[in-house]
């Protein structure tokens, strides 16, 4: 039930954003996140964006993993 998926914000109107995942558009409330911008990747849960994805951290995790398995 805590399933949440990464989507990209494509437009924002007040507390509502339109997000896209795999070509499908959805509405998402952004009441629970500060300073959401167009282009951000957010984690969507039960109709709300609950966190922003951190691109640098995502890169770093993969780099570290590759290092660990070398």
């Amino acid at each position: 039930m805590c399933i949440a998926v990464p989507c990209q914000v494509i437009s924002i109107k007040e507390n509502m954003a339109t997000v896209e995942i795999g070509g499908v558009k959805r509405e998402a409330r952004i009441d629970l996140l500060e300073d959401v911008s167009i282009g951000d990747y957010v984690i969507l849960h039960a109709g709300f964006a609950i966190q922003r994805l951190d691109a640098d951290d995502a890169q770093e995790t993969l780099r570290l993993l590759k290092e660990m398995t070398e």
Binding site: C2, R29, L32, I50
Partner: peptide, 17 residues
């Protein structure tokens, strides 16, 4: 409303609205 901490803030935002 059922759920853990993931969902509770979304319910809170709904009550506030």
């Amino acid at each position: 409303a059922v759920g853990f901490e993931t969902t509770a803030p979304t319910i809170a935002a709904t009550v506030l609205e």
